[in-house]
């Protein structure tokens, strides 16, 4: 019976290795579309990504910049104290979205405007995305009240 068991073990090894190899290939393929980089406005202005690449733009919603478009969309600027980028969004803003608060927009940048497909919501008014906090701290424009 020992022979049979060794044979099974070999087969098992083959199957698992094959499954893992397939997983690695699929993961590599998935990473091409599935990874979104986080950028601040100044990083985005410095280094323009391809216009079809989904990115996450994070910073503070500039006070006084939120405006309605006649089409029903909304426009505002996301800033990190150094740079600021106009964002366009058609849809329902998250409940806790407001001026002078942190926000993350998911979308594409065409060099002039950021076309957001989603404004990331927060579930908690005290919560600020840690990427935004860190980016603002790096730029030296973080103040505790923002958190």
């Amino acid at each position: 019976m020992m022979g049979l068991r060794r044979k099974r073990r070999l087969q098992l090894l083959t199957v698992s290795t094959a499954a893992l190899a397939v997983a690695a290939i699929l993961a590599g393929y998935g990473f091409q579309d599935g990874i979104e980089y986080f950028k601040t406005p100044s990083q985005l202005m410095e280094n323009k990504p391809k216009s079809d690449k989904l990115i996450r733009l994070g910073g503070i919603v500039e006070p006084g910049s939120v405006a309605r478009m006649p089409s029903g969309g909304v426009e505002f600027r996301i800033s990190d104290g150094i740079g600021s980028i106009p964002v366009r969004f058609e849809g329902i803003l998250p409940d806790l979205f407001s001026e002078d608060r942190g926000a993350i927009a998911r979308g594409r940048y065409n060099g002039k405007e950021f076309d957001a497909i989603e404004i990331l919501a927060k579930h908690d008014e005290n919560y600020m995305p840690k990427e935004v906090v860190r980016a603002l701290k790096d730029q030296g424009v973080f103040r505790p009240g923002l958190e």
Partner: peptide
Amino acid sequence: GRTVSVGAPFFNAAFTPF
């Protein structure tokens, strides 16, 4: 030192086939 997020397309491509 890069900040990234992994979104649904990754899981659709790599998880769903299994």
